[in-house]
Each structure stands twice: as structure tokens, then as C-alpha cells.
Simulated assay, not measured.
Amino acid sequence: MNAPSLKVAAGLAVLSWSVVGSASDLTIHLSGSEPISRKTVRYQCDTQGSKMGLPAEVFSVEYVNGAGNSLAIVPVGGHSLIFANIMSGSGARYAALQYIWWDAGGRGVTFSSDSIAGSLTSECHRVE
């Protein structure tokens, strides 16, 4: 293989590695004997949700619980954001960046954001 071909092949290898490398998996090691549970729930939100970065179509949220942690992985702005459970008077309330994902039990799910642009809220519902 001549030098220019070798450079092109090396460049393509680096490019393909960076594309493959951009998709990430995360492993978190948690101490304790409590089993880890995972549940995926599908949602659809109103049009305000898509303006805030949620998918316009039906999307999935993964809930991970165990070892004293409760997390919700929500697709926002084309990324999977990890929301951590925070204190709530009712239901399960999760926070990430400026966002709140709040499953208030029988009252439904809200997605809200407080930013310089102001407070925004979207109403969401489970899709079976």
C-alpha cells in the first residue's frame, strides 16, 4: 500500500472509531445487596414538550432503581439525560440540568424547565 493510501485508510479508521465511539454505554457499580430494577415506560407529551426538546412522537423513559438510587433516563434534545430522584410531596420527581420530570401518580406526568427564557411546562401521558 502506498503512502497516500495508507494515510486515507488510517484516516477512515480514526473516523469510523470516533463515530462508533460517540455512542456510549455507561456502567455504574453500586454497593449493597438490594437488587437493581429497570422498567421502561412509553410516553407522549403535548406540543410544548417538543419545543422543550422532548421527542414529538412516542418515546421511552427508562427507570432504574436500587442501592438507594432512583433514576429516570429521558431523551431531551437528542441526548439521553440521567435524571436523579429528588424530594417530592407526592409521586416521583426527578431533576437534570434545568429540567424536572415529575410523575405525580394519578395526576399525570409533567416535564418542566426553568431557564433564562422563563418557566415552561409540558403535560405528558403514558402510552400502553
Rank of each mutant, 00 (worst) to 15 (best):
Ala3Pro: 01
Pro4Val: 07
Leu6Met: 08
Val8Met: 09
Ala9Gln: 11
Leu12Val: 14
Leu12Gly: 10
Ser16Leu: 14
Ser18Glu: 05
Ser18Arg: 03
Gly21His: 01
Ala23Arg: 10
Ile28Phe: 07
Ser33Thr: 15
Glu34Arg: 13
Pro35Arg: 10
Pro35His: 03
Pro35Gln: 07
Ile36Trp: 05
Ser37Lys: 13
Arg38Gln: 15
Lys39Ser: 14
Tyr43His: 06
Gln44His: 11
Asp46Ala: 06
Gln48Glu: 14
Gly49Met: 05
Ser50Gly: 00
Lys51Tyr: 06
Met52Asn: 06
Met52Tyr: 03
Leu54Arg: 08
Pro55His: 08
Glu57Asn: 14
Phe59Ser: 09
Val61Lys: 04
Val61His: 03
Ala67Leu: 08
Gly68Ala: 11
Pro75Thr: 06
Pro75His: 04
His79Ile: 00
Ser80Arg: 15
Phe83Cys: 06
Ala84Gly: 11
Met87Leu: 08
Met87Ile: 07
Ser88Trp: 04
Gly91Tyr: 02
Ala92Trp: 02
Tyr94His: 13
Ala96Val: 05
Ala96Gln: 03
Ala96Arg: 02
Gln98Asn: 12
Ile100Trp: 00
Arg107Val: 05
Val109Ile: 15
Phe111Pro: 04
Ser115Ala: 15
Ser119Glu: 09
Glu123Val: 12
Cys124Ser: 00
Val127Asn: 02
Glu128Lys: 05
